[in-house]
Design a protein around this nucleic acid. Structure first.
Lengths: 201, 201
DNA sequence: TACGATACATGATGATGATCATGTTTAGAG
DNA sequence: CTCTAAACATGATCATCATCATGTATCGTA
C-alpha cells in the first residue's frame, strides 16, 4: 500500500544532462519502471481520463515523445499499470481485522495516490479495455483469497463469504469517505464499517 | 430504481417539425426535464466524462446549441442531474434485506443506465464540482437513514451501523460485479455479499 | 393584432490531448 | 574503432469537445 517516492528534481535535472541521447539498456528498463510508477501514482490520485500521457512522462523525468517506445497506447499503459499495481505484488498474509483497520483509516482515505488501486480505480476500470479489466479481475480473485486466509471463520465457505462481504464493504466505504464533503459523515462511514466488519469477522 | 423510457424516435421527428421555433413555456419545462432524464441515463451508463453535451441533447430530442439556455455548463448539468437522481426521489421505507436482494441482483448489475446512480457514479463524483459532491453526500445521508429504518436491529445505534456497513458492501459489490470479466466471479460476489449482509441484518 | 424577447437551430472557435514525424546522439554489435 | 539501430527530444497533426455567435420563428405581452 505504501509507495516509493521518486526524486522528481533529480530526474528533471538528469533529463537536461542527457538531452538527445540514446540510453543504455538498463537505463531504459529503469525508465520504463519510472513511467509505470508515475502512472500508478497519478492514475490513483486523479483517475485514468484526467491524467495525460505527457504528464506521466514529465513525472517520470522524460518528455511525451518517448512514450510510444515503451507502450503501444495510453490504454496499453493503463493495463500495464493495473497489472503492476494489483497483480504483481506478492500477497502477504494478514488477519482480516488488522487489514480492515488500516484500510479504513483516515490516512488511507486521504492519500489515494499511494493507497489501494482498487478503491481508486475499480469503478473506472469497468469501461476500460479488456486487458485492464482482466488485470483488475485477477486482482479481485487474489484479494478475496488472501482475505479468506486471514479470516477466522469456522469453515472455508464462511471464510470466503466473510472475505467477499468485507472486501466489498471496505472498498465501498473508502469510496464513500472520499466522496463525502462532510468530514464527520466521512469519518463515521469509516468507523462504522470497521465495526460492522469486526462484528462478523 | 426503474426508469421511464422516452421515445427517442418520436422526439427526433418532433424536432424536425418544430425546427427554428420558440417554444411555449411549458414545452421548455418539458424540454429541461427530458435533458435531465437523458443525462441521468447516459451518465449512469457511461460516466460523466465519456458523455458529451451534444449527445445528451440529441437523446433529449434537441441540438447542442440550446443547452446553454438550460444550464450554465456541463458541470452544472452534472450537479443538477445528481440532485435529480439522488436527492429528489421520495425515500420509500423498505426492509434492508429485501432492498439488498434487489440491489444485488444480476438484473441490476446488467443495467446501469436505469440502475442506482450511486453505484454508477460515486467514484467519479469524488473529482466533480462541490455542488455535485454536495448532492451525492446528501443522497448518502438519506440512504443511510432509510436503510437504518428498515434494519431490524436491537437499538438505533446498531441499526445505523448495519445500514452503513451494508450499504458500503452493496455498492462495492455491484461495482465489483460490473467490473469482473469473469461471469462466475461476478455472480459469486453478488450472492455472497447478499448472504453476508443477511447474516448480520 | 403587432412587436419584442426568447428558445432553439446552425455553424464557428479554441483548447486540449493522443498519436505521429523527424532529428540527434550514443550504445553496442561487428 | 566504425557504423547502425535504438531511445528519446521536439515539434507537428488531427480529432474531439465545451462553449460562443448568430439567425430565425414563434410565444406572449401590450
Amino acid at each position: 500500500m505504501m509507495m516509493i517516492m521518486i526524486e522528481v528534481k533529480r530526474a528533471s535535472s538528469r533529463r537536461r544532462e542527457i538531452a538527445h541521447m540514446k540510453v543504455s539498456r538498463e537505463q531504459m528498463v529503469e525508465n520504463r519502471r519510472r513511467i509505470l510508477e508515475a502512472a500508478g501514482r497519478l492514475f490513483r490520485a486523479r483517475g485514468f481520463e484526467a491524467v495525460t500521457v505527457a504528464e506521466v512522462m514529465r513525472a517520470a523525468g522524460l518528455t511525451h515523445g518517448g512514450f510510444y517506445g515503451h507502450f503501444r497506447s495510453k490504454d496499453d499503459l493503463i493495463a500495464a499499470t493495473l497489472a503492476e499495481l494489483v497483480v504483481a505484488p506478492e500477497p502477504e498474509p494478514t488477519a482480516l481485522s488488522d487489514f480492515a483497520a488500516r484500510y479504513l483509516s483516515p490516512g488511507h482515505r486521504d492519500n489515494p495516490g499511494d493507497g489501494c488501486p482498487v478503491a481508486a480505480l475499480v469503478s473506472e476500470t469497468i469501461r476500460q479495455a479488456p486487458e485492464a479489466r482482466a488485470a483488475m479481475t485477477e486482482g479481485l480473485r487474489r484479494q478475496i483469497a488472501r482475505l479468506a486466509d486471514g479470516a477466522d471463520a469456522v469453515d472455508p465457505k464462511a471464510a470466503r463469504q466473510a472475505a467477499i462481504g468485507s472486501w466489498a464493504a471496505m472498498v465501498g466505504a473508502v469510496i464513500f469517505a472520499r466522496m463525502s464533503d462532510d468530514p464527520d459523515l466521512s469519518d463515521e462511514v469509516l468507523a462504522q464499517t470497521r465495526a460492522w466488519i469486526a462484528r462478523g469477522a
